[in-house]
Every structure is written in C-alpha cells, then in structure tokens.
Amino acid sequence: MADVALGETPPSIPRRNLPSASRSDRRFKWLLVAPAALLILAISIYPLIFSIWVLFVNYDFQIPGHAFVGLKNFEQVVSDPVARYSLLVTVVLTVSNVLIELLLGLAVAMVMARSFRGRGLIISILIVPLFISPVVVGQAWALLLQRPFGPTNYLLGQLLGQEVTIGWLTQFPYNFIALVLADVWQWTPFMFVILLAGLTAIPPHVYEAAELDGVGAWQTFWHITIPYISPMILLAVTFRLLDAIRLFDTIFIMTGGGPGTQTYTASFYLYTIGFAQFHLSRATAGSWIFLILTLLVIIFLVRRLLKPEAN
C-alpha cells in the first residue's frame, strides 16, 4: 500500500492505565527530544538569530568593530541587477527542471507499472543517479559535453552529417540546456520512484471496470490514473521544487556561473558575494530575502499538501 500520510495525526489508540507515573513520563518524553532539539537550536536556529544582527551592521573581517549601517545591506542587494537576474534564472531553471522531471518520470513510471521479466533489475539501474553527489553528476556531464573532449559534439555531427562545435558549457543557450540535462538526469528517478509507488497502488478492478465500460486509454489516464496519483504528484513536486530552488552544485562545477554572470542562480549569487567578495553582511541580507521568498513557497505548497481532501 502506498498512501500519503504526511501530517496525518497518529491513530488514537486508547491508552490503558500504565504503571508508570505520568509526571515521570512527561520528563522522559522531553528528555528524549532534548538532544536533537538542542542540536538544531545550536547549529541552525542560533546562527539565524545571530545573523539578524549581522543584517544591520557592516560585518567585515578587515575592519574592527561593526558599524551600524541600517538598511544599507538590503538596499545594496535589492538594487543589484545581478541579484534580480539570478532570481529570475532560479525561477526559470526550477520550473523547467521540475516540469521535465515530472513528465519524464511519469512516462517512465507508466511504462514500468506493469510487471515483466527484468523489471526489478531495471528499477535498480534507474534509481542509481539518486545516490550520486551532484558534484559528481556535474563533473560527469561536463565530461560528456565539454569541447573538444566530450563525445557529444562528435555524435551530433555523425547524426546531422556536418561538423558540430557547440560550447556546451560556455555558449547560450546550450549552457542552460547542459544544466537542465544534469538536473533531469539526477532527479527524474525521484519522480519516477514516487509515481511508480502511486501507480502500483491503484487497485486493478478500477481499470477492469473502465475497460468493461469501453473507456478509451486517454480517458482512463485522465479520469482514473491522474486523480488516483495526484496526492503523490503534489508531494513529489513539492519536495523537488524546494530542492530545485537551491541549485548550486552543478553550476559550481559545470559553468562556474558563467559566462560572466549568465548562469548565476540565487544560491550561486549569494555564495559569490559572501565567500568570493566577502561582503558578508550584504550576502546575509540577500539570504534573508531568499529565505523569506522560500518560506512563502513552503507555506503555499505545504498547506495544500496537508489538506485532508487532497485525495
């Protein structure tokens, strides 16, 4: 059985009278939670709170003392055309990556839904990209595409019957295609695995009934398959979207943000101003803007995900 259970309240099993006192129970349950909660507070929450102070000063390793600068850090980010451009690149790349991964993942899941000989082996092969570091994925695609070493231009040349000299990592729009290829290669299996779990959970009698009624294949797909797996689609797309907007690793390895700032994503932009130019306060201000934008997306998506009528 595959069913979406995120946000479902635990089944209320009537508790029998337990011998242990309820007060020690209460201490016990918080004691178990404490180490993990303290770690999150120390490594994730405290730095975030600390950074609120960094936002309004000029934090610089070279200059002793941190002068209060008010909203200047925000102004510098908001007025930077590269910042706005990188946000646009993030949105465009995120939407195209997730959309292609969804459609391709669904197609492959449909093909794999019926059992046949060798299906288990093929599934094991298809999920391999999920276990590889994005840096390695970027490196692998760079090797495949890079001029003059990669075989891609040669194969395209053979196919088209003329010499092909595309600079896949340096030339617009091929650099974007290369980045999408690497992302689609790595994350289509994510969609595939989740949607396959959804497809195989559809009870066969539903299809049998449709067949008896003479419903066509497309009709069956739109009116039976899609509604059945829509909770899985929503969940898979939510998880992917929230990871896709962080896109950084493949950019770092494949294009380095270039040429110029052409393939800057929001994460890459913030990394560059923070850790290459050491404008720490400005980068922090940018991070907060990005965090708040992300939170808006999270609230919008996770709310829908948690709606009980999603199925």
């Binding site: 946000g7 309240t9 939670v33 993990a36 909660a37 999150i40 490594i43 994730s44 405290y46 730095p47 975030l48 600390f50 950074s51 960094v54 934090y59 929230l242 907007i245 962080r246 950084f248 929001a266 994460s267 913030l270 990394y271 923070g274 850790f275 720490l280 980068a283 922090t284 991070s287 907060w288 990005f290 965090l291 992300t294 999270i298």
Partner: peptide
C-alpha cells in the same frame, strides 16, 4: 504535538545558503 514535528521537518526545507553564512561566522 504537531508543532515540534513540523518544526523539525521545516529544517529540511530551509535553503542551506540561508544558514551557511551565519554558521560560517559562528
């Protein structure tokens, strides 16, 4: 209740770039 579990879950979706600068400074 649900608050604690979702607080933990929300950590999964924080963009690393948002935490990394202050973490680096600390």
């Amino acid at each position: 209740g649900q608050h604690l579990s979702f607080w933990v879950l929300s950590q999964r979706f924080l963009p690393p770039i948002a935490i990394i600068l202050p973490l680096f400074l600390n």
